[in-house]
Design a protein around this nucleic acid. Structure first.
Length: 819
RNA sequence: AGGCACGUAGCUCAGGGGGAGAGCACUACCCUGACACGGUAGGGGUCAAGGGUUCAAAUCCCUUCGUGCCUACCA
């Protein structure tokens, strides 16, 4: 949003496609609360009732919520027309699926899914939570078919042995070298299964012999493929043992485990049981232990798509910021596996495929075929599986613009400029959009990908719904204000680093919002009846020349920082400029003119502070949209919204580089006096007299022209500026450039204190001088360092030693008095 | 186990080969006509430790320690 507001203010035609990041938490709350209010939950609500509720939610909260429902394992019957949640997207999804199928990039195959027997859904890898748990490692004897001896196999899941179709050992394992072509008997079922050799097996783990259950373990499935093993599925979708489990049929999987262990013991086949800790996959929603199950799934062949998507980044057509993430992206693209796109959930785009009720053939088409193209049977049943959320999400950059029609929107906005997202969906979403965009549009979907920081909790952990360590943004906004929160996020969003949310920082930026508000109040209070606004009121005073010069530079820097996705840099520049330059110096100096007698100057100043406020609001608007808009609406001559105002540009303002140096002199002298006042504990109510001894004529000029500011800002009553002036006796002295500022402290000065202060200054300077001097006496430095660096150090050393001698002079003067 | 980050002021963090920074907290003096959610000034750091490259290292490289994240697996 910061980027969009900024671009729009720069005059770009902005199309913002809000993603669904962060919608998940809100959706879950809505859904769960609503179900709870009705005295039910998502496991028991039932499909029909749920579908009705989806419609209510949709009316109440809008369409965005639906995308998130899929993640909750919610689903509905896609064939029912009233659930066409987004006609455009739905069309695009069918189009893409059918085309991929025609190109041979879609196929059906066997796959081990992570099945939750309670939610009745398959879970993506990311949705499986691994929890370390106390468990047991069972050592089970598999007798040799020959009848003599046995092989010991270690397992944590004895109930799956009913589906074993082999026992594997490592070919390097000498213990089992003589088991070639040997078979063992599956305990209980007494079914002979082969011993196979595969290097996947670790010799050091357990007994070095691994039971292979291709239908209930992803790794065993892979091994099974290599060795062409039979796949025996013994656990069903309810988590119960099926007819292939023999005597255990109908038992729950956990009950079966107990029974089979007891039976093995009875048979003398249980060698031993060891306590064991291991991580077991659980459903991230209901915490039920997941069951890996064999099933038929739809796949997309990703190799050709991923190659093109990788090349687009390699060639720089799409750039990923921070660049560090490019490596992660390549890593994934280069090692990609085929994408399983089918999901067994209640809500989603139903796969456009039909099975013939007679011959069983599959027909992939955009609409239901009249009859089977193979056998002519008119009875066709649509696939009940729906597509992975990311399948439709992958089409986002072009499906939302009207594809497959060629629309004006599509030709105007595709490829898009930038995608801003979190790293956690770099693979799931960004990579898929790249693949689909390039494949179907023939061009990249976006030029830049900015991977933003992730907000973590106080311990630096990733926030997650299931962990419950989520900071609710609405609460923070209530507490500190939306603009303060937003500004904080921007200020903390350094590239490549995550955000540990700090309440102190939010509080600090809330104060900043308040400061801006008060500064605006001051300006609006003092501009009076402005006749004209804008830069036609040429700045004449030092303060004006200086602030416009600074404004020009800051505007440029802020714009550049945003362009570079350095949001923290941009936010900080705004903060420093508005608070410490505009408020601390400029407005303070403007007061003198506003409260003065010179009506012409008064009017010019009024116009200028208004101009500076206007520009400051514009600079801040992308970061603090609400307060800037609110102030904007109160300002005279500001039609419309600040959103449509032009972002400040360096060339909008009159600049004068010499004003920067002049201002340095003035602020330097003022700071010097303030420093003495502070160190000497002189209350602000007490004014002092000063004598300024300046060597350079133009320094004296600057000071003489700004005596009033000096008096007002340093609380000075009388001041005399001259050269080679003697140091007044009862005075403290600040040295700056070639200027000595003597603050008269008759009756106030504590000479010991002043000596201490000067000694402190000398000590600090000497340290700095030593560093510079060491460099200058280093031949290597003089020869090899760049000339500008050498001359810089030389100048510095000279300035330091000049200042030092001034301070020492002062010190001996003081010591003279005292003695 | 592997990969990737990160250890800078009491706290939260910027910066990043030539002068140690911000916000909050702290100390002192102040309700001065926008603002005490404020003003002015001040104190506070061997930039994790050790080594290397360089004229020059908080910054680049290596090692160690610590922290966090990601990925995989744990039969």
């Amino acid at each position: 949003d910061i980027l969009c507001r900024f671009k729009r203010m720069q005059g770009f035609n902005v199309l913002w496609q809000p993603g669904t990041d962060h919608a998940g938490i809100a959706t879950q709350n809505v859904v769960e609360k609503d179900l709870a209010a009705r005295g039910t939950d998502r496991h028991t609500v039932g499909r029909e009732k749920f579908i009705d509720l989806v419609w209510e939610w949709r009316r109440k909260y809008g369409g965005l919520i639906l995308n998130q429902l899929k993640r909750l394992g919610c689903s509905c019957d896609w064939s029912r027309e009233r659930f066409t949640m987004d006609e455009g997207l739905s069309r695009a999804v069918k189009e893409v699926f059918v085309r991929l199928h025609e190109e041979g990039l879609v196929y059906q195959g066997d796959y081990i899914i992570n099945w939750c027997p309670r939610c009745h859904t398959a879970l993506a890898d990311l949705e499986v939570e691994h929890q370390e748990k106390e468990s047991r490692l069972y050592h089970i004897r598999y007798p040799f078919e020959s009848g003599r001896g046995y092989l010991i196999v270690a397992t944590t899941r004895p109930e799956t042995l009913l589906g074993d179709t082999a026992v594997a050992v490592n070919p390097e394992d000498k213990r089992y070298a003589d088991l070639k072509a040997v078979r063992v008997l599956l305990p209980v079922l007494n079914k002979p299964i082969p011993v196979i050799f595969d290097s996947y097996v670790d010799t050091w783990f357990g007994t070095g012999a691994l039971k292979i259950t291709p239908a209930h373990d992803p790794n065993d499935f892979e091994i099974g493929n290599i060795h062409q093993l039979e796949r025996v599925k013994v656990i069903d979708e309810q988590g119960r043992m099926n007819e292939l489990a023999g005597p255990y049929q109908g038992m729950d999987r956990f009950e079966c485990r107990e029974r089979i262990v007891r039976d093995l013991e009875g048979l003398g086949l249980l060698e031993k049981v060891e306590p064991y800790r291991n991580a077991i996959g659980h459903c991230y929603r209901c915490k039920t232990m997941i069951e890996p199950l064999l099933s038929k799934q739809w796949f997309v062949k990703t190799a050709p798509l991923a190659k093109a998507a990788g090349d687009a980044v390699r060639s720089g057509r799409t750039r990923i910021y921070p660049v560090h993430w490019e490596g992660v992206y390549f890593e994934w693209m280069d090692n990609i596996r085929d994408w399983c796109v089918s999901r067994q959930i209640w809500w989603g785009h139903r796969i456009p495929a039909w099975y013939c009720a007679a011959c069983g053939r599959v027909h992939v088409a955009k609409a239901a075929p009249e009859r089977c193209a193979h056998c002519g049977n008119p009875e066709l049943v649509q696939e009940t599986d729906v597509l992975d959320t990311w399948f439709s999400s992958a089409l986002w950059p072009f499906s939302t613009l009207g594809w497959p029609d060629s629309t004006v929107e599509l030709s105007t906005f595709y490829p898009t400029s930038a995608l801003v997202t979190g790293f956690d969906i770099l693979f799931f979403w960004v990579a898929r959009m790249m693949m689909m965009g390039i494949h179907f549009m023939g061009d990249i979907p976006f030029k830049d990908v900015y991977i933003h920081a992730l907000v973590r909790d106080a311990e630096g952990k990733k926030m997650s719904k299931s962990k419950g360590n989520v900071i609710d943004p609405l609460e923070v906004m209530d507490q500190y204000g939306t603009d303060a929160f937003r500004f904080t996020l921007a200020a903390l969003a350094a590239q490549g680093r995550d955000i540990k949310l700090s309440e102190e920082r939010i509080l600090g930026y809330r104060h900043f919002v308040n400061k801006l508000w008060n500064a605006a109040r001051f300006v609006l209070m003092n501009i009076g009846p402005i006749k004209t606004t804008g830069p036609q009121n040429l700045p004449s005073t030092l303060a004006d020349r200086w602030i416009f010069t600074r404004l020009a530079r800051v505007s440029e820097q802020v714009a550049q920082a945003i362009e570079d996705y350095q949001f923290n840099e941009a936010a900080d520049l705004c903060y420093q400029f508005v608070w410490h330059e505009v408020c601390d110096w400029y407005l303070e100096m403007a007061k003198y003119h506003l409260y003065g007698e010179d009506t012409e100057l008064k009017q010019a100043t009024a116009a200028n502070i208004l101009e500076i406020l206007t520009a400051s609001l514009k600079l801040l608007h992308p970061f603090m949209p609400f307060v800037t808009e609110e102030i904007w609406q109160k300002m005279p001559g500001k039609p419309g919204s600040i959103m449509t105002a032009a972002f400040p540009c360096a060339t909008d303002f009159p600049t004068d580089e010499t004003s920067l140096q002049e201002m340095d002199i003035l602020t330097g002298v003022i700071s010097g006096i303030r420093n003495i006042r502070g160190e000497m504990n002189i209350p602000p109510s007490k004014t002092v007299s000063v004598v300024v001894d300046a060597v350079k004529a133009h320094h004296r000029d600057i000071l003489n022209r700004n005596l009033d500011h000096l008096k007002a800002l340093a609380k000075v009553d009388t001041v005399s500026v001259g050269t080679a002036l003697p140091k007044p006796e009862a005075s403290a002295t600040a040295v700056f450039e070639q200027i000595s500022v003597h603050v008269l402290l008759k009756g106030l000065i504590d000479f010991e204190e002043e000596k201490r202060r000067i000694k402190k200054g000398i000590k600090k300077l000497e340290k700095e001088w030593e560093i510079a001097d060491r460099k200058l006496s280093n031949k290597g430095f003089l020869h090899k360092a760049p000339t500008e660096v050498v001359s810089e150090v030389r100048e510095k050393a000279e300035a330091l030693s000049a200042k030092l001698s001034k301070l020492k002079e002062n010190l001996s003067f003081l010591e003279g008095i005292h003695d």
